[in-house]
Write a protein that binds this DNA or RNA. Sequence first.
DNA 1: AACTTTACCTTGGTCGGCCAATCAATGGGT
DNA 2: ACCCATTGATTGGCCGACCAAGGTAAAGTT
Lengths: 167, 167
Amino acid sequence: MKADPACTDLPSAALGGPVSHAVSRVARLHRFAAGKLLKGLGLYPGQEFLMMYLWDAGAVRQSELIKAVDLDPSTVTKMLQRLEQTGHVRRCPDPDDRRAVLVEATDDSCALHADVERAWTNLEEHTLAGLDPSERKELARLLAKVEENLCHEAEDCSEAEDCSERH
Amino acid sequence: MKADPACTDLPSAALGGPVSHAVSRVARLHRFAAGKLLKGLGLYPGQEFLMMYLWDAGAVRQSELIKAVDLDPSTVTKMLQRLEQTGHVRRCPDPDDRRAVLVEATDDSCALHADVERAWTNLEEHTLAGLDPSERKELARLLAKVEENLCHEAEDCSEAEDCSERH
DNA sequence: AACTTTACCTTGGTCGGCCAATCAATGGGT
DNA sequence: ACCCATTGATTGGCCGACCAAGGTAAAGTT
C-alpha cells in the first residue's frame, strides 16, 4: 500500500473507463481500510457482512443468509466454518429440514456488535472526509444507480431462462 | 449473483456507514461484471491492470510494475507466473541488476489490447447507464476525493516517516 | 575491503470469492 | 407409490490479495 501523492495515472487502455478504474481502486483501498479496523476485532474483511446480518436476524437457515448477503453458497460455507472455529458463530442442523443448517451469532460475537458498528461508522467518516452533506447524499444516490445497473446485468446472466416458464 | 429487485436492506450495524456498504456491494458487482467480459479474452479479473500497464510501458522492471499497480509484491509475482504460463507475459533477468526481473507483454497479448480496451469501455457504459454527463463527472469527482481520503490513510500506515527527507 | 543496510523478488500460508461437481433431502407430477 | 426436478449444503480447485519470512544482490558506511 504505497499510495502515491496523486494515486492515479490511468493506463491508456483504461481511458475509456475512468470511473470503472476509480471504482476498482477505491474498492481496494476501502477494503484495506476496513480490514485494518476489523483486524483488532478478530474479523477478516468480508466477515462483517455475515455477522451484521446474523446479529439482526438471529438464528436463520444458511440459505437465507446466502440470499441476504448474495454471495456464492460455497463462499458462505467456508466463511461460516472459519467463523465457527473462531467462535463467532454457532451452527446446528435444522430439525424441520434435514438438509438445512441453522446459523446463529454466538453471545461472544454479540459483544462485538457495538464495536463493529463503531468501526463501520469510523470507516464511513474516513471515507467521506471533506465531503459536505449534499455531496455525500449525491454520492450515495449515484452509487445506488450504479449498483442497480450492475445488478440488473448480473441478473439476466444467471437467470437467462426467466421467460421460459412454459418449458 | 441473485440480484434482488432492490438490492439492499442495510443491516442495522451498517446504518452508520451506508456509503461504505454501497462501495462494497458495487465493487463486487463491478468486479463480477468485469470478470464476465474478461473471461472471453482469457484473463481473470485483476490481471487487466497488469496488462494495461505493460501494454503502455513495454519492458519494465517488476518493481516498477509493482509500484505502478500498487499491489503487494507477492501478489504480482504470482500473477505474473500465471500470466507467463498462459503466454500473456514474458520475463527475463535484468542484465544490469541481477536481482531484478524484466517483464514484458508478449506479442500475442498485444492482440488483446484492443479487445480489453473495448471491454473496458463497455463496462463503463454498463456501469454508468442512465447517468447523464454531469452526473458521471460528479461521480468521478467524488470517487477521486474518496480515493484520496483512503489513500492518505493507507499511506501514513505503511510509511510513517514520510517527512524524513533530511535524515 | 569488510560490514551493514537496503532493494528485489520469491515462497508459504491464510482469506475472500468464484465455478463445477457432488450428495442428501424435499417436493411435485403422474 | 414412484420417479424426477428442485433445493440446501459441501468439497475441491482455482485466482486475487494480504502478511511474514527468507534469500540474493546491490548500495552505503566505516
